[in-house]
């Protein structure tokens, strides 16, 4: 499976990044207590004076065998625990936003494509393009400004109840919707021109069924790939939104880690997120196989013949 080398590669990449980063972990850990001698001793204990390869190997061994992502410099507790406690927030944020984005995006994309050149098409296209062009943190701030500060409908930050989730998911969801909508529209436009759509109409089929059953099912195939990639992008976007709305998720954790030079925390989180992304893409590939019969047959043929 191609997956494993990629995962390994990511681990190496992440570790190397942190290795290169300025700052001496031992000195930071000791904090005020640090003297050059103590730093040396701690460095030796932590294995920081060993060659890069050895450190890399140790790290990877810990990760793969023990799921041990190291100890946070800041809280002195295992990174993995911190990540696990924050994971649900980020996952929920990502998936709810994705759901909003997909529903909104596909619906508007289909309408746009079917009524090409109409005013609905023009307006939704412009909106979608704005959605894609707007920095998510700014959109978040604008939402805060309008809905929280001025209209006082929603709270500004935190995540203690349903109300708190509305603005963040809307922000991310709109961005996702923009991208999904554009992809849906172009995919539908291409599919609608195909001959088999004409065949369906020639059978006397109603336009609604032609669009939903014949066109959309074919158009969905490339859209699914985009949705998968988008989820990855959303995880990244979650970082910003969590920052603006002060939600206790992984994104905020990374930021705090960066600001506090807490490298194991940052390293570990990036690794976990990359891992999630890879799993999502894998899931997308599998779904793809189910949805497109051509791929399904190729797959069956390969496994039969092999």
């Amino acid at each position: 499976m191609d997956l494993i080398p990629v995962l390994l590669g990511v681990t190496v990449l992440v570790f190397s990044l942190m290795y290169v980063a300025p700052g001496d972990p031992a000195a930071i850990l000791l904090g005020i207590d640090s003297t050059p001698e103590r730093v040396e001793i701690l460095r030796h204990e932590m294995g920081l004076d060993r060659p890069f390869i050895v450190q890399l190997g140790l790290y990877m061994k810990n990760v793969i065998l023990h799921f041990d992502l190291g100890i946070s410099y800041r809280t002195k507790t295992p990174v993995i625990n911190e990540i696990v406690s924050r994971l649900p927030t980020t996952i929920a944020l990502t998936f709810i936003s994705m759901a909003i984005g997909v529903l909104l995006g596909i619906a508007t994309g289909v309408i746009s494509a079917v009524k090409q050149y109409s005013w609905i098409d023009k307006i939704t296209t412009i909106f979608a393009l704005f959605g894609v062009s707007t920095p998510s943190f700014w959109l978040a701030l604008m939402f805060v400004l309008v809905f929280a500060v001025n209209l006082r409908w929603f709270p500004v930050s935190g995540s203690y109840g349903l109300k708190y989730w509305v603005l963040p998911t809307l922000t991310l969801g709109s961005q996702a919707a923009g991208i999904v909508m554009r992809m849906t529209r172009s995919s539908m436009l291409e599919v609608i021109r195909q001959d088999y759509i004409r065949t369906a109409r020639a059978k006397g089929q109603t336009e609604w069924v032609v669009v939903m059953k014949h066109a959309l099912r074919n158009a969905l195939i490339p859209i699914i790939t985009v949705i998968g990639m988008q989820t990855g992008f959303l995880i990244g976007g979650a970082v910003l939104v969590e920052a603006v709305f002060s939600m206790p998720g992984l994104g905020k954790y990374i930021l705090e880690g960066i600001n506090n030079l807490d490298y194991p925390a940052v390293q570990g989180t990036v690794l976990v997120i990359a891992f999630m992304y890879i799993i999502i893409m894998l899931a997308v590939d599998i779904i793809y196989g189910f949805v497109d019969p051509r791929i399904k047959s190729q797959f069956i043929a390969k496994t039969k013949g092999a």
């Binding site: 990629v6 990449l13 992440v14 990044l17 990855g232 992008f233 995880i235 990244g236 940052v266 990036v270």
Partner: peptide, 16 residues
């Protein structure tokens, strides 16, 4: 490998 980290995160990590 590079692509499997959402690019925003990657940029954040590299910038950090």
């Amino acid at each position: 490998g590079f692509a499997s980290i959402p690019y925003l995160l990657l940029a954040i990590a590299i910038a950090a």
